[in-house]
Design a protein around this nucleic acid. Structure first.
Length: 446
DNA sequence: TTTTGAGTTGTTCGA
DNA sequence: GTCGAACAACTCAAA
């Protein structure tokens, strides 16, 4: 009896799964495999890894315990398992990150030595990165024209579910590493969350998405990260909500940029600011990480990140801007901290979002756009509820007063820290640094 | 080839 | 308090 392997990666679901359909075609028995790749599990205590393990537990439950886990180098493990079950083909969703592409090239070569094939069907995106190109065949570098071409390109409807898949159950599995269980992990939870959002806050998304106090965004980022739900499923039901579709498109745009420019994961995409002077991370960086900068909105966000492994997007921008433009720290330091703490940590979205804030990214914000953390708080958390939720030292202040504790006699009565930098001075410093970096390069003579 | 319009998310200052 | 201008120049995409 023919057997194929479905090697799960960022597609931890059983419905709307083209690679699963391909693997099970013709009644083929399918071995569901996940590889615990040491190269990806180095940060084993990160929230992202914990979220992955919780999702794997949910997938295994959905498979009635059939999921096979193997630890090791994928090119060795896949070849060995394929030999073990004599599978002619290993099916995957196409991976387009720098590491994923290198890995899959090696795995395909290893399989071919035994006359077996790595077959990619579908990807974690509505439009697979690399497929949207300008008329001249080069990739887009600006979001708006990309989004138009992406919409024109279009995407398939959600795939049928493969209900009658025969799963192979006979081979040994390594144990799932210890992790903190999470009720929100897994395909069923993702579908339920989407249904609730679709029938609830989606209608007000355009007006309320920037309000961290209302907390009315979809919270689907981690589910999308691990493919518990596919963006196709969301897009099929998000007609008439262009802002929500645009946010999904940002995810695809950044994946596309990373596909074409893999080095941009950790290096400035735009060399314009190559001469920028940054400060090494020091005590103020530690204060930023801990949510102790003395700027309430920044601190609320950084504490939400530590407490929940998630932060509202508006606050991600403000806190990232604060690190880069108020503390003058190079964006990769901040991006690394976010990736270590975010359950939804995605290299393309996270790091290119940071580059956008820093002014080094594609389609970057103008350098003089420096968020005022106080103004942002008054505007997007007008009643102060978000700050009070995460900063207990400020709970005695009412309404928007939480955003300016220095104005009130009892503002620091409960131990809230003083501001680590002065906004106006830090802003002026940032503008001066950008101005200096933009000067034509001067030749220094020894 | 050249031209033209446009580019996620803002802040400050002065009238 | 409100409003418009300044903050810059450059690159991108398409006609």
């Amino acid at each position: 009896m023919a057997t194929s392997i479905l090697w799960f990666r960022r597609d931890l679901r059983l419905t709307d799964h083209p690679a699963l359909i391909a693997a099970a075609e013709g009644g083929t028995t399918v071995l569901p495999l996940f590889i615990l790749d040491p190269a990806l599990l180095r940060s084993a205590d990160s929230r992202r890894t914990n979220r992955l393990l919780a999702s794997l537990a949910a997938l295994n439950d959905a498979l009635d315990g059939a999921l096979v886990l193997r630890r090791g180098d994928p090119s060795e493990v896949v070849r060995a398992v394929a030999w073990e079950v004599d599978a002619a083909a290993v099916h995957v969703s196409e991976e387009t990150t720098p590491y994923g592409r290198r890995r899959d090239t090696r795995v395909a070569a290893a399989l071919e030595q035994d006359g077996r094939w790595l077959i990619a069907t579908g990807s974690p995106y509505a439009v697979t990165p690399g497929r949207v190109l300008k008329d001249d065949g080069t990739p887009y570098r600006v979001f708006t024209p990309f989004s138009k071409a992406w919409q024109s390109h279009g995407w398939r409807a959600p795939a049928d579910s493969a209900r009658d898949t025969r799963w192979l159950r006979e081979i040994a599995s390594d144990d799932l590493p210890e992790h903190e269980p999470q009720a929100e992990a897994g395909e069923a939870a993702a579908l339920a969350r989407w249904a609730a959002f679709r029938d609830g806050d989606l209608a007000g998304y355009n007006a309320q998405r920037d309000r961290p106090d209302l907390d009315s965004t979809s919270h689907l980022s981690a589910a999308l990260k691990y493919g518990e739900i596919h963006p196709r499923t969301l897009l099929a039901e998000a007609h008439g909500h262009p802002r929500f579709v645009a946010e999904l498109c940002w995810r695809e745009f950044y994946a596309d940029v990373l596909y074409h420019r893999p080095e941009s994961a950790w290096a400035d995409l735009n060399p314009t600011l190559a001469g920028m002077t940054y400060d090494a991370p020091g005590p103020e960086f530690a204060a930023w990480q801990a949510g102790m900068t003395g700027y309430p909105l920044v601190d609320a966000g950084m504490r939400q990140l530590l407490a929940e492994g998630w932060m509202h997007n508006r606050v991600r921008m403000v806190s990232a801007s604060f690190l880069v433009k108020h503390l003058h720290v190079w964006w990769p330091h901040g991006a690394r901290h976010f990736l270590a703490q975010l359950a939804d940590g995605d290299i393309a979205s996270n790091n290119h979002g940071w580059q956008w804030v820093a002014g080094t990214g594609t389609d970057a914000a103008p350098y003089f756009r420096i968020f005022n953390p106080v103004t942002q708080g008054l505007k997007f958390d007008p009643d102060g509820n978000y700050v009070r939720r995460y900063v207990p030292e400020l709970r005695h202040l009412e309404g928007s007063a939480v955003h300016e504790p220095w104005r009130w006699g009892d503002g620091y009565a409960h131990g809230y820290p003083q501001r680590v930098v002065d906004h106006a001075a830090a802003r002026a410093d940032a503008l001066a640094r950008y101005a200096a970096a933009r000067q034509p390069a001067t030749v220094e003579h020894a």
